[in-house]
Each structure stands twice: as structure tokens, then as C-alpha cells.
Design a binder for these strands. Sequence first.
RNA 1: CGGGGCGUAGCUCAGCCUGGUAGAGCGCUUGCCUUGGGCGCAAGAGGCCGUCGGUUCGAAUCCGGCCGCCCCGACCA
Length: 439
Amino acid sequence: MRLSQYFLPTLRENPAEAQIVSHRLMLRAGMIRQQAAGIYAWLPLGYRVLRNIEHIVREEQDASGAQEVLMPTIQSAELWRESGRYDAYGPEMLRIRDRHGREMLYGPTNEEVITTIFRDGVKSYRDLPKNLYHIQWKFRDEVRPRFGVMRGREFLMKDNYSFDIDKAGATRSYNKMFVAYLRTFARMGLKAIPMQAETGPIGGDLSHEFIILADTGESAVFCDRGLVDKDILGRAIDYEADLQPLVNEWTALYAATDEKHDQAKFEAEVPPDRRLSARGIEVGHIFYFGTNYSAPMNAVVSGPKGEPIIPEMGSYGIGVSRLVGAIIEASHDDAGIIWPESVAPFRVGLLNLKPDDAAVSRACTELYAGLKGKGVEVLYDDRDLRPGAKFADMDLIGLPWQVIIGPKGLAAGKAEVKARAGGQREEIPLESVVPKFTS
RNA sequence: CGGGGCGUAGCUCAGCCUGGUAGAGCGCUUGCCUUGGGCGCAAGAGGCCGUCGGUUCGAAUCCGGCCGCCCCGACCA
């Protein structure tokens, strides 16, 4: 993409409305614009990141055996009366009426819908287990939206729902999601640590929040440093095998949010040099909740002897739009965003420092075509601006690599390649640029 | 929902106390200049001063209602 043609309204100053760094940077980098409190429009750059995140989530869900569906944003009140939650939910739920006066709502979550879909389509224990997910916009009318997309009222979320014949099966489904989540966040360049969460009325230990570490995180977290060093992407995962040992490996070490933190236990279990107290942002939550919805909504299957079985359910969420902000919180510097390659809107930023110079522009055009031809996503800054403005914009939007072409380097047949993370620069021959990003 | 603050140009803000018909910097447009970190000079464009009403000869400015946004707290993916 040529930057001269791209819709990238960057801001030089911090908008007064934005307080935290990810919100400021997303506005300044031209990723989003606020439409109302907690409601945002996604501009091209931001939307590319959102889709990249969505893509990783989808791949890992599919790999784990979950199947994608798409449920509506608008649901009927009747459905929620069936589960008993219509009156229980409170003013967070956006309630609306259609032209016939029927009570509708903009879905804050999807347990009811999925349960009816399951109920209508699955009649036998032989059809279990099932795990269905979707990635859809949700709305919760928060009293006080803030932090940009980190805590908006409208947000994009991946949520899925597992149905199993018994608790053991539900645990297997839970473990699959546990591992899929570890992989999902790791692929985004994040250190996500599973922490025991409140389990509500069901009890037990099958509920974890996935918290990523970021200095500006909203809650304090405490954990064993060993968790941060663990690597999931290097492991071969067989989702058909017993994942319990793997899950145990991650849950054996101490990890707690401030609500559940027990300082005495922390000190007893974790050696001093491994005690990590940091700040974190919740980006995912997995939850086993048994028959809370299947029972009241009469989602029953027949067992081997014809007896009714009420499936054991679990639900699993990832805040997709929140992740965009969360990644920035975890990865930025004074100059701007530093995208991990896996989610970056473009991989390479190509800077033409002197568009007036025919030789420089020719070299840039060739590199641009060469990179694009090899499938490298490249944003080519061909605008007629001073070099300083280009550097500033490029650092702000945080593409992982900058290829800088100016008259000086070009005279020596060199391009300068700068890594946005760390800022290391190297001069390489022009003809090495394309291979560098394709080999 | 309790407490606090703010709505003036695309962005950041001044002006408001002490009413007299609107300003700065950045951004934008044009020209010159410049070309490795938001350069310089010059000339421009751009605002029903959130909205409705009141007071007044006259309201961005004073008074009231409404709307919107932000911050702290409680709450939350």
C-alpha cells in the first residue's frame, strides 16, 4: 500500500479524551475514532490489526477442534426469560424494541442462543462432545466505559461453548481450551499467564483468567517467574491426547490476581528470586459451569439406555478488540507502538526519504514491487514530506521493520533496515532487501 | 450509580472572573526554500464558541434546563 493513498489520519498531539497509552496511540496512529462513549469505528490500520488477531484466534480454535458459527447480535428477550437472566442481568443489557413492540436486546453474551441451537440440533449422547465458537460484536452498557477499546461498551469477542456428557468430558474440553489459549496469546507475542479465577456457584478449580503482563495493567498480579519463561509454541500439541499433564505444568506454579492473592502462600511456595509481582490485563477467561443453562433451558440428550442426560457446559472468552489495546500496553515506547510481527498491520514500512530524487524513487518503487510480489505486506511512504515526519509516523504506527532509502545510502547501493523493536539498524545491499524478508 | 472536571478551528488550548460581535501553536492549502528525525519564510482557508431558553441595547463571557465527553470510586471481557 502506498501511504500517499492510504487513509491514515495520524495525530501529532494526544487527544484530550485519551488517558492511557494504548488509547492515545490508537487514536494518534489513526487506528480508531470514537463515535460515542465506549463505541469506536475502526480505521484501516486498526482494522488490519483486529483482523490479524481474529485470524490467530480462529486458527487456534479450529486446531483445538472447536467449530465456528456466527450467532446474531440481536436476541429476543423471550430467550433470556427462559434462562431466567432477563430480569437478573440489569442495566448493563441494552434493551430495545422492534417495530412490533417486541422486546429485543443487543447480546452481551451468548449462552442462551447457543443452548437453543444445541438443544434443537443434538439429541443423542453420541453427538457429544461439541464445542462451538463464534467471533462477534457484543454490547454491555457499562456505566463507565474507559481505556479506549480495552473497556468499551461495544467489543469484539470470541466466545465458545462446550457440551459434554459428564464432568470428565467437560474437563477434557476445558483443557483443550486452556492449551489453545496458551498458544493463541503466545502467538501474539504476549506473555499470558493463567490465573485461578472465581468459580461462582459451581465451585471447583475449573476457571482461569488469562492475564498478560503490562506495566500499565489495571490489576496487580503475583506469580512464579517460572510461568513467564515457559514456552508453549515449542511443544507439539495433540488435542486428542490427555492434556492434563500439560495443564498441570502451568497450574502447578503460583499465580494469582490481587483479589485471590495470598501473600503467605506466595512466600511459602515461591523462592524469593522467582517472586514476580507485576500488573496485568485480563484478555481471556475460561469457565466450566456445568448445567447452569442446559438444565433450565431443557437442553437434554438421550443416554445409552435412553435416559435423559443434561450436558455439562463450559464457556470460554477472548476479548479480541481488547487485545488490540492490550498488546499496545505491553509493547510500546515513547515514539509509539511496537507491533509483534504476527499482528502487525504491515510487516515492513518502506521510507522514501527523497521522493524528488529520481534514483531514490526508482529504487523504492522496485523494492515495493519486489516485496509485494513476494507476498510481504509493505506500507510504502511515498509522500512528499520531510524525512523527520516520515520517521515519526513510521515509529508511531509501529511496523516491525523499516526499510529506509535515502540518497546517501543509495549512492553506495545500500538500504538501511531498522527493527522497530530495539531500534537496531543495519545497512544491507539493495538487492538483499527482498530476500531478507522472504527467506 | 456516588464524587469531580470539561465542551471555543481538524488537534492541543487561551479568551469567560471584570459582557462590546473570536485568538495562538500545531495541522491543512498555495508559493519559495529545504531534504537522514515533525526545517525555514511568506500568503491563505477554516469556528452558529455543544444545545435550548433567560437576563441585557448587546452574551463565547452572566443565569437556568438539556445533551455530550473525561477523570476518581463502585462495577466489568
